[in-house]
Amino acid sequence: MNTYYAANLLIYAGVDIIAVLALNLQFGVSGIVNFSFIVFQAAGAYAAAVLSMPPHTAADYSFQVYFGGYQLPFPIPWIGGALAGGVLAIPVGLVVLRKLRSDYQAIALLVTSIIANTVINNARPFLNGAAGLALVPQPLQDQVDTNTDSYLYLYIALTAVCVGLVWFLAARIVNSPYGRTLRAMREHELAATALGKNPVALKMTMFMVGGAIAGLSGAILVGFLTVWAPSTWLYPETIILFAALIVGGRGNNLGAILGALLVPVGFEEVTRQLIRMNVGPPNVIPALEWVAIGLFILGFLWFRPEGVRPEPRHVFEGSPETELVENVGTA
């Protein structure tokens, strides 16, 4: 296991943790079934890419076409990525979250994810279509040599700082009175509305916060990979994150982190080892990996719907709520 591979694993782990924490805020805490989560990560990645790349007329970049190309220095692309994810959440949220029943919301978001991918895939002048963007500049590459181990450590450190920030933010939201309101809405929207809470505003806020965090995760990923294409954000990628959250424990930030380490990171690693050991034909293993993820989801929803680390329940002894909470708690 060389340094580059270890760094690769750590950075992926960081990106997945950030993404699953964001999904936890939306799905775990607020009950928004965001099946287009990966679109927000993609928006962040594309935004970070076009903010940091030179215009597509530049000498080395003329083989691709894209809009923008602003060559802005590091932190701006990452901040821009987060902003892009948050801003994209506004129109999507306004269409989906206002009137529709929750299961329709889920379907609408799933379809949005598939269609967004189709559009970017076919509309080449916008973001270079199916081929995607390549040669995305890495953060600080004009100041540091990116081909050294110390750059990898630097990138891991930057990722870790973001993980820390996102975790702090998520913990603050989950443990605050605002988080309690979100959980109340998730458990019983009508009751929360009757108490004067505005579920649409709450959902829109969490949609934007989660979208911004997803955008940040995309920006981090594209800075490391230096390429980004529609094939990297197909809708099943969202299902992996859902699997992570269901396995780890919905509504629990620690559970989300645990799930991110177990499912996306763990599966990648196991698959890589299996392919390296030549167990079975190489293109069957990734397919079976998806089957296994499906089985994980079904298995956990059946045997342990609350996940490995369940959400702590704050219910007063003897309160009439106890029975209600147990009834609606199973998803």
Binding site: G31, I239, W290
Partner: peptide
């Protein structure tokens, strides 16, 4: 299993 849970179940089945 709730409505939303069933949607997730069917999506998992679709993927598998």
């Amino acid at each position: 299993t709730s409505h939303i849970g069933m949607v997730i179940v069917s999506l998992a089945v679709s993927l598998m």
